[in-house]
Structure formats: structure tokens, C-alpha cells
Nucleic acid binder design. Structure first.
Lengths: 238, 238
DNA sequence: GACACAATTTACGTATGCATTATCAGGGAG
DNA sequence: CTCCCTGATAATGCATACGTAAATTGTGTC
């Protein structure tokens, strides 16, 4: 999974892969979102409809549709004469995001533990944990982040709750830039492997309450750390 | 956040009443959504862009934008040659919705209890509970539902978490029709007053864990009841 | 009567046109 | 030098135009 869009990751796993990218509005949506997630359009950056249309080699119509979608996802705001503006993510935003994420991923873990997990996805989760471990030992934070995302993504997918999946994805996208930018500034996530392993064990042994508790604690801790880090650094424009 | 949705239904609460509706796309969005929530466009109903445009006395352009927004909110699907189609809500959907709602409203209650609640909003919550009581004694289920919604809405608002507020609103909207349609079929919510009162007490006394627990149990029970009711009645097209 | 295929209709996706109105520059008043 | 007012500029929101492709209707064959 590339460090790009959650949505892309979704579609790569989802059975019905939308192959037919014959749709300009979708193209615009994907490309604009990619620009934002990758930081090519940083917080506060503005882009006019016509500007984006020229850049994407299409008319304003599909661009406009894409912008409306991005606005609804909380990625940008649309201001009448200034085009879309990439929303900054403040420490307060991250606190909001992680508060919700904690609850949502908590019930995802609970649901998976309750439903029981097949051998294949269980192995996949363990593999992600192993990858995190390897990346940490190699001092490769980017790979660690990738494996971490993969773990959480798979877990949520396994819940089978489409609304849960969609909402978590949206929150992840909102937090993506802040996570990436703080990756090098945050303390090394040495405990993450143990924590994830404990979660997998709780799931494997079919203990929903523990699974939820562990994951909530995990996310809450991560959120607290990130928020404090952002506040300490005075970063309010990520 | 959607300008209308849940918020407008209870606009008496919302401070900023959107008077400026000079925007056709917003008008289209509001009116189409209203049609769906009120059941004028029942599940499975289809409406072409041109059809809606004529009906709303505008061109296809703003109608199209409205439809895109409704799609992203999970209210309709858009099928290339058949316009938008109002999505049915199955028992399984309700299970999904309530699973997420339980978690989200749970942390909302927790957050409010943790932050502490001022006298005014506290009184407002108690008033909603009192209204529920009155409505129940009068055998007026519609009023009961209204007061119940108002209670939950205010509670979530008090959390101050805009993302939480938005997501809960979206889920409520999705579940709205099913709730209304089962209102007369479900057992009388005799316990609801006691449960809500207990939650208010937990919040007033600043007990986040209890508040969360109580609200989660409350929502879980309500969800379970609704899902079972829908399954029993074989209602999969609400 | 059923079915295959062609002609026609039509809904959509996108491009473009246009009136409105916010923004910005420039000049004059204080 | 600063501020206000006015006209030019430009971005938007919406309407409309248009080509494409799906759906539907009609026709002929078996």
C-alpha cells in the first residue's frame, strides 16, 4: 500500500475494482486527493476551478464535482472566489480525529474478535506486525508506518461493517499528512509491536472485550502522543 | 458538514439558521434530502436528473451536485442511466449503523461527562427527558421520538467534536426512515426515560466511564431491538 | 410466438456560455 | 501617507449545448 490514498488502498483490496476510470470526475477526485495527501498541495494551498481544470486537462465541470466530494470528506473547504483551500490540521483537529478513531477502531477490534478470524487474515495481521518489527529494527520509520497502516486497515476491513470502514478511512485521510510529518519527530514506536501482538492474541483467542480495550488504549496513547507533540512544536498548520 | 441534514430538522436548536439559501445546489440538496427523509421518496425510488431539475425548477447542474452529495452520505446510489435511487435500509444495515452509533454516542457521553456540563445544557437535557416522559404518558410516540432525537442530538453536540457530530448525523439520517417506520411496531419504550435519566445523572456527576457505559448499553439495546424487529417482520426495504 | 438485431430515443458526462458579484487596482480626498 | 470610492477584472454558479452510449422500441426471421 503506497503512502497515498486510503481510498486507493481500499479499491485494491475490494473485490469490485473500479477499473473503468473512464470518468473524468473520478480522475479529478483521485488526482486532487493524491496531491493533498502527498503534500504537493500543503495546508492552506488554494486552487481555482479553472486552474485545476487546466492542470488536469479537462473542463471545470468534473473538477467542480471532485471538489465538492473533497469538501464533504473534510479535506478542503470551498470559498466562493478563492477556489478550494486545503484544510490545515491542527492539534485540536488531531485530538478530534483520534478521539473518534479510538472508538471506531475499538469496536472494529471487538467485532473481529467476536466474529472470529480465519487463518488467512490472522496470518496477514501477524505478518503486518512482523513487518513493523523488521522496519523498526532497520530504523525505517516509513516502512514501519506503512506496516502499521496496513495492520489497522486490515483490521477494520475484517469488521465487515461498511460504514465503519468508510468512516475510519475518512478520518485516516484527514490525519494522514500530520502523521507523515510527525513521523520523524515522534519518539520511536518501540512498544507498537508488543501492543499489536497483544491485540492479535486477544482477537485470535476470541476475547472481544480485551481486544477492544487493548486497541482503544493503543489508539488513545498514539493520539495523545501526537497531539502533545503537535502542541509542543506549535504545529497548527499541518 | 452538510448544511441541512440532521441539523435542519432541529434547526430550532441550531443557532445559525441558513437563511441565505441563495444557492441552488443547496436548495436541491435540502429538498431532495427532505423528500427522502420524509418518505416521499421511498426506498428504491428513482429520480432522473432532469426529472428532479424540472420538479425543483432549476437546471441539471445544481441537481447533479446535490445528488453527488447525497450519494456520499449514503442516502442514494447513482446508476448511470437510472438517475439516483433511494437506498433501502435492511436489517443488516441497521445493525451496522447501530454498531457504529453505539460507539460514537458512547464517547460523546463520555466526553461530555469528562468536560463537565453547564447548567443550561444540563437543564436542556433534562427537559428532553421530561418531554419523553410526557409524550409516553400521552401515548404519543411521534413526540416521544422527537424528544428522544433532541436528547441524543444535544448530547452529541455537547461533545464539541465536529467530526463526531457530523458522523453521528449521517448515521442518524440513514436510519431515520427505519426508525420512523418501526415506531408504531416496536414495543413501547417504557425504560427509555429511566435510562436517559441515569445517563444525565452520570454526566452531571462527572462520571465519564459510567456515562459511556450507560449510553452504550442504551444504544446497543435499542439497536438490537430494532434489528430483531426488522428481521422478524422481514422488512428489508425500509 | 419467441428471439435476434437494427433504429431510435434518451440520460448522462462533459464542455461551454453567460450573468452575477466579489476582488483588486488606481485615483482622489482627507 | 492613509483611507475611501469607483471601475476593471475575474471566478463563480448555473444554464445550456453536444457527443456518446445505454436502453428501448420496432422489425423481420425462424
Amino acid at each position: 500500500m503506497s503512502p497515498t490514498s486510503r481510498v486507493d488502498a481500499l479499491s485494491s483490496i475490494d473485490a469490485a475494482a473500479p477499473v473503468d476510470r473512464s470518468n473524468q470526475a473520478d480522475v479529478a477526485y483521485d488526482r486532487l486527493k493524491r496531491l493533498i495527501l502527498d503534500g504537493a498541495l500543503p495546508a492552506g494551498a488554494q486552487m481555482l476551478e479553472q486552474e485545476a481544470a487546466t492542470r488536469l486537462n479537462m473542463s471545470r465541470t468534473p473538477v467542480r464535482e471532485a471538489m465538492v466530494r473533497l469538501r464533504q470528506e473534510g479535506m478542503v473547504e470551498i470559498r466562493p472566489r478563492h477556489g478550494m483551500r486545503v484544510l490545515p490540521v491542527s492539534a485540536r483537529d488531531m485530538a478530534e480525529i483520534y478521539e473518534v478513531l479510538t472508538a471506531l477502531e475499538g469496536i472494529a477490534a471487538e467485532a473481529v474478535a467476536r466474529k472470529g478470524i480465519a487463518a488467512r487474515p490472522l496470518a496477514s495481521l501477524r505478518a503486518a506486525v512482523a513487518d513493523m518489527d523488521k522496519a523498526l529494527e532497520a530504523g525505517d520509520l516509513v516502512n514501519w508506518a506503512e506496516a502499521d497502516e496496513r495492520f489497522h486497515f486490515q483490521l477494520v476491513q475484517l469488521s465487515g461493517n461498511s460504514r465503519l470502514i468508510q468512516m475510519v478511512g475518512q478520518l485516516w485521510d484527514q490525519a494522514h499528512r500530520a502523521r507523515m510529518l510527525t513521523l520523524q519527530l515522534r519518539p520511536t514506536p518501540t512498544n507498537s509491536v508488543t501492543e499489536h501482538a497483544a491485540l492479535v492474541d486477544a482477537i485470535a483467542s476470541g476475547d472481544p472485550e480485551s481486544a477492544r480495550q487493548i486497541h482503544e488504549d493503543h489508539r488513545r496513547r498514539a493520539g495523545k502522543m501526537l497531539v502533545e507533540l503537535l502542541e509542543r512544536l506549535g504545529l497548527t498548520q499541518l
